[in-house]
């Protein structure tokens, strides 16, 4: 049996009295793209944010069950959250580069870790920008503000910034919903390339996007993981009536 890189076991999550995730047990395969789909408020983004513990920032978050990364519970009492977040990178819905130079954006993660010298940082910045298909566009203006980039470039910069930490897993929270179609397809193609080096989890409202790029589909509804399976199967013959209804646009 192939062990999953991420595995949730009977994961439940509450915001105050609001029970957001119900008994989610899901495995994520290494170096594949898993798309999480479902109607708004189904808990897919919340589930994504449990993988790098970003939900911790919200007051009164409670969790039961387990989230395993490489077999280790990331919610165990002595878990190092900052270390976890360097292993599990994240890109957000709206491109959010810091109001700093392009270089300093990408170097940020390494700078806060404080264990790299200048030349290591420079090398990694270049590699990350290349991996995010941005190097040729920015190599002559690394010291310019990241805010001078276009929306699509900013989002790729955010991907490069996450990659600079050498993560095992990359979480993408609706990464293209604020972008135009061209930038969107560029990022989709980039994802297909990146899955050679990282495991990708992507939350998307765009069913077609999930179809185009994912290897696995997790369909969430009302905080439950309704269906999980290979995209080829889920998109042609879904097992659950609710998945069928969502994919055919009956609700959502």
């Amino acid at each position: 049996m192939v062990t999953n890189q991420i595995q949730t076991l009977k994961l439940n999550l509450w915001f105050g009295n609001n029970h957001v995730l119900h008994d989610v047990s899901m495995g994520v395969t290494e170096k594949k793209i898993t798309a999480m789909i479902g109607p708004s408020g189904c808990g897919k983004s919340t589930l994504l944010r449990t993988f790098n513990r970003m939900n911790d920032l919200i007051d009164e978050t409670r969790i039961s069950g387990k989230v395993l990364l490489d077999g280790e519970d990331i919610y165990r009492s002595k878990a190092d959250v900052t270390n976890l977040r360097t292993r599990v990178g994240m890109v957000f819905q709206k491109p959010n580069p810091f109001p700093k130079s392009i270089f300093n954006n990408v170097a940020f993660g390494m700078a806060v870790q404080g264990k790299f010298n200048r030349s290591q940082i420079e090398d990694r910045v270049e590699k990350s920008l290349r991996d995010a298909w941005l190097w040729d566009e920015v190599k002559d203006r690394l010291n310019e503000s990241a805010m001078s980039l276009s929306g699509g470039q900013q989002q790729r910069l955010c991907i490069a910034r996450a990659l600079a930490n050498n993560p095992e897993v990359l979480l993408l929270d609706e990464p293209t919903s604020a972008l135009d179609p061209q930038s969107t397809s560029k990022i989709e193609e980039l994802c297909l390339e990146l899955k050679n080096m990282v495991t990708i989890l992507i939350v998307t409202h765009n069913i077609a996007q999930a179809g185009r790029i994912s290897d696995y589909i997790a369909f969430m509804y009302l905080g439950e993981l309704v269906e999980f399976g290979e995209t080829n199967k889920v998109f042609t013959v879904p097992q659950d009536k609710r998945t069928e209804a969502y994919l055919t646009g009956v609700f959502g």
Partner: peptide, 9 residues
């Protein structure tokens, strides 16, 4: 969020 997600304290 971006900063924390990159592993900053």
């Amino acid at each position: 969020d971006a900063s924390l997600a990159l592993g900053a304290t």
